[in-house]
Design a protein around this nucleic acid. Structure first.
Lengths: 69, 69
DNA sequence: AATCCTGTATCATTATATTGGTAATAATTT
DNA sequence: AAATTATTACCAATATAATGATACAGGATT
């Protein structure tokens, strides 16, 4: 998964839930600058930041062994 | 997923592949300090770092909508 | 015992994620 | 069109991730 794809997933999910960047920033406690940049893939967030964002977007991260083709 | 669990997954996978922390550090280009601390859950790695480690451990990250119970 | 090998501890330094503010732009609403 | 809301741009300051080196402890090997 690329960092841009991660951002798109977060943005799409936020839109689905009908909340703004400001909302998500307020709820998670991170700045809107941070949220905006993560969504656009121009930032390299830490695990904790992702963890918090995911929690409020009702998303979960999973790690799997990659399939051999 | 907690940060400690993430570390365990990485450590277990590394063990399965039979490589050392030094090996993984050399391959990924990160320091062994960083690898060691991530595996023990005492560090909060960035997405890019995880991305690189996962690549060499043949792991992949997935994001899913959390199931409602 | 002495020699490797692996993993952890510590710490000063560097790199960069995050913040918080303001301003500018884009999109919606009235 | 004007006003309101949402998003992005920009930038200095702060917090912290990452480095790199050394030292230490435990286990395995010779």
């Amino acid at each position: 998964m690329e960092i841009e794809e991660l951002g798109k997933i977060i943005k799409n999910r936020r839109k689905v839930l009908g909340i703004t960047i400001r909302d998500l920033a307020d709820i998670t406690g991170f700045s809107k600058t941070t949220i905006s940049q993560i969504e656009r893939g121009v930032r390299n967030p830490t695990f904790e930041v992702l963890q918090n964002i995911f929690e409020y977007l009702n998303l979960e991260m999973k790690v799997e062994v990659k399939m051999r083709i």
